[in-house]
């Protein structure tokens, strides 16, 4: 199975571990992720106003660079931006003509745009994944945290049921974990408000972490570097049992019996900053 791969900036910086563990796992699973040449930041948020064409240039350039082959990303935000930009290119002829003329590319919304979890579910299959697990996560009580960007808007993302998704739970089951459900798994973590309105993010994150703790989860699973950061850094102090935050790929690599040495860093070096 061969895919074009768009990493995005955070996977070369703060969330390097998500890329490293995915790459190691993909190799074992027979999934080839071919990194696009000369890619640039997707813009992190999809422009919600139809005349904001400049912010579409980067994602459309990326979509066109995939050359009609399936394009995979790991970061939930990159995936959201690429998928929505693709939908806009299919739907809005005027925007498509302006953007593709400016970029001098030929693109009209073709090609599959996938999140790596979709590759695991739809192309590899969770049954097949379960067979390849070497060190099942038996007895580990883990909960999915979907957040917003993989699920919404559901009509465009078509990732899973937006109100009752199961893909991360099914993934965790394939890895042998004990799945715990928490009521806040599709609620927003506060996103970029942790930069500008930290108190607001503190409030949203604390609700998510408290609900996970009450449900008995020892870890929350995410595919979004910003969710990961907020969940780890913005929760109110609590004397209860700590809830660890994992990227889905960290558990994937672990269950496949891989040890990944991280050259990355929770502390950022300044390299790879936007």
């Amino acid at each position: 199975m061969r895919y074009r791969y768009f990493p995005g900036c955070t996977l070369k910086g703060q969330a390097k571990i998500m890329e490293e563990t995915t790459m190691a796992a993909a190799e074992v699973l027979g999934i080839e992720l071919q990194e696009l040449a000369d890619w640039q930041c997707c813009g992190a948020v999809f422009p919600l106003y139809e005349d904001e064409l400049i912010t579409l240039l980067s994602p459309v350039r990326t979509l066109a660079a995939a050359d009609g082959e399936p394009l995979v990303s790991l970061c939930a935000a990159c995936h959201n931006v690429l998928k929505r930009a693709q939908e806009l290119m299919q739907r809005n002829e005027e925007a498509r003509n302006k953007v593709t003329d400016f970029l001098e590319v030929d693109y009209s919304g073709e090609g599959r745009v996938l999140h790596f979890l979709e590759v695991l579910r739809d192309d590899l299959g969770f049954d097949r994944l379960a067979e390849m697990v070497k060190k099942p996560l038996t007895g580990r009580k883990l909960a999915a945290y979907y957040g917003c960007l993989l699920l919404r808007p559901a009509k465009i993302m078509q990732f899973d049921d937006p109100e009752n998704p199961t893909i991360i739970e099914d993934f965790l089951k394939a890895l042998g974990a004990e799945v715990v459900k928490t009521p806040y798994r599709t609620e927003c973590c506060g996103a970029y408000l942790s930069v500008t309105e930290e108190n607001v993010a503190r409030d949203t994150v604390s609700k998510i972490i408290d609900s996970a703790r009450r449900a008995g989860a020892e870890g929350l699973i995410t595919a979004c570097p910003l969710c990961h950061y907020n969940l780890e850094n913005c929760a109110e102090e609590n004397a209860g049992k700590p809830v660890k935050i994992f990227y889905f790929s960290e558990l994937l690599a672990e269950a496949l019996g891989l040890t990944v040495e991280s050259g990355s860093a929770e502390e950022k070096t300044g390299e790879g900053s936007p």
């Binding site: 969330a15 996103a191 300044g270 936007p274």
Partner: peptide, 11 residues
């Protein structure tokens, strides 16, 4: 030094 790149670009 702490914020992920994604947070800064989004904000």
């Amino acid at each position: 030094s702490k914020l992920p790149q994604q947070a800064l670009v989004s904000a």
